[in-house]
Design a binder for these strands. Sequence first.
RNA 1: GUGAGCGUAGCUCAGUCGGUAGAGCACAGGAUUGUGGCUCCUGAGGUCGCGGGUUCAAAUCCCGUCGCUCACCCCA
Length: 420
Amino acid sequence: MNRLQSVRGMHDVLPDEAQLRRRIEQVWMEVAHGFGYEEIRFPLVESTELFRRSIGEATDIVAKEMYTFEDRNEDSLSLRPEGTAGCVRAAIQHGLIPNRQQRLWYLGSFFRHERPQKGRLRQFDQFGVETFGMCGPDIDAEILLLGWQGWQRLGLSPRLVLNTLGNPDERLIWRKQLVEYFSQFESQLEEDDRRRLKTNPLRLLDSKSKSIQDLLEEAPQLENLLGEESRTHFDGLRETLDAHGIDYAIDPRLVRGLDYYDFTVFEWVEESLGAQSALGGGGRYDRLVEQLGGRATPAAGFALGLERIRECLEATATTAVDVYLVALGEEATARMCALGMQLREQMPDLRIRTNMEAGSMKAQLRRADKSGARAVLIMGEEELSQKSVVLKFLRGPEEQQTVLLDNIKSALAEHFAPTG
RNA sequence: GUGAGCGUAGCUCAGUCGGUAGAGCACAGGAUUGUGGCUCCUGAGGUCGCGGGUUCAAAUCCCGUCGCUCACCCCA
């Protein structure tokens, strides 16, 4: 019988790392909160149809990376591979969209059946924001400012890469020109690139193959096809970013792999991560709401890969408790347990760990030391009869003292100032 | 889906020419009875990823498989 293990590409998060993960999540939740965004939660499973219609049939995500299955009613369901589709579906279903502005954020797990590697898991966590009902470049700028504040608070400074994909008409023309251009060189193209030329020619732009990169030098540029609206939008976004002193680079080759983007697209990139270097990305998707059955509504958003962000941060986990409770003998153990409950009620910020499995004084103090506790309370026969407890400090020069049970709260309060 | 490298104790790793396993850290107990950390002693802990093959004998050689890592691909 094989030893049970987690499924491929789906990792456990152990206590050391969990703490850092929680910090990252907290930063983003607080930043979104501070911008007046509201939380939304939606299911991990949706009908497969939803993802086909939003992300696009031809994308790799839908074509070969989804966890798709039939349930007992023979309905085709899929584990969500990204957040935007489900968020939009939920917003439409509950009337969150028409005739108003909406700013939402979400946090959760997503699933893609890809070959795992650094920065790429089959189950991964994302934080994302989606906004509806605002068509100007100022909302594009706002979500970038929101992101910028998050990076600041985490002490990171990923490179912001920006591009515009124009409107669908402009893009269609560009796409045709690209296909024509690359078709001349079809015989020189590698198999992957030839396939892309057929199915998703825009993706040739970010191909890593040398031949493509060389050919791109002379390839038709979308910039030359952009109309008034597209230009004004992009310029407006850039002005706002400049006004806030936010650094960015324009990369005309940034296209992204989901079909629903228009106008603005962007990524935050941290090169040191290796091949999977995008910490997050997003853009504007003005057609998606209508495409999914809602009233036409402009929209913009982004998503961040929490595991990748974690990779950039040092684990400085401190799982230390504050106070460790040591007791000798049955009666003292029971009395100490009660004292612990009392103190947790009186001082809810304190982390108080009770010794289990008895053990000698030596063993208990050793566990206290390992727990990282700054102070320990000790109760034995003597203290029991005196209605007192020994307060001993493990980390500082303070002498240990015997404290009456009635005074223990104030004695602790002297050494553990309430935080936050 | 493709390619390369790697799977030995909880962790990091050693293991020669095939002769059925070791270290450090971590863990538990002790060094005169109720005081942690440092030191010393002792102990516990291993289906050598899994399955098959070759052999008198496999952690070691061969095949398969699962997993990890990195890259392609793709994206967060």
